[in-house]
Simulated scan of single mutants.
Amino acid sequence: MLADDFFVRFVRIFQAEAQTLLSHADTLPHLADPRLAPIEMVRYLSRWLAAPGVDDAYGSRAQRLMLLTVAKTLPWRGTRKALATMLELYSGEPAIISESGGVFDQGRAPDGARWVRLEVTSTGPLAEEDFVELVRDEVPAHIGVEIVVAGQQIWPVDGSAASAGRRER
Rank of each mutant, 00 (worst) to 15 (best):
A162M: 14
S60F: 01
L118A: 04
P52I: 05
V132A: 11
I13G: 01
V157H: 06
A109P: 01
T85L: 10
V70N: 03
V70A: 09
G165H: 02
G78A: 10
A51V: 15
A161L: 09
S91K: 03
R108H: 06
R167I: 15
S98D: 12
L22F: 10
E93G: 12
A161Q: 12
A164Y: 00
W155E: 08
I154C: 06
D55I: 12
A164R: 10
L49Q: 03
G92Y: 07
A3Y: 03
R80F: 05
E17S: 07
I97E: 04
A62M: 12
S160F: 11
D33R: 04
R12T: 03
E119S: 13
R9Y: 02
D137T: 12
D55T: 14
G78I: 13
P34D: 04
G53F: 08
V120F: 08
I147N: 04
R167K: 12
K72S: 13
T79H: 07
R64L: 11
T69H: 07
I147E: 08
I96Q: 05
D130W: 13
V135Q: 04
R108T: 02
A141T: 04
T79D: 04
L36N: 00
L21Q: 09
V103H: 04
D55A: 12
L28V: 12
S91T: 06
D26R: 14
I97P: 06
W155D: 07
L134T: 08
Q106L: 15
M66W: 09
K81A: 14
F131N: 09
E40I: 00
I96H: 05
E133D: 10
E99P: 02
D26L: 15
W76A: 11
D111C: 11
V149Q: 03
S46E: 01
Q19S: 14
A3L: 14
E133V: 14
Q153G: 01
V70W: 09
H30W: 03
A141E: 05
A113Y: 05
Y44A: 14
E138N: 09
E138H: 08
G53H: 10
Q15M: 08
I154A: 04
T69V: 15
A82I: 08
V132N: 02
L134G: 10
A95H: 04
E40M: 00
P75K: 00
I39S: 06
Q19Y: 01
W115H: 07
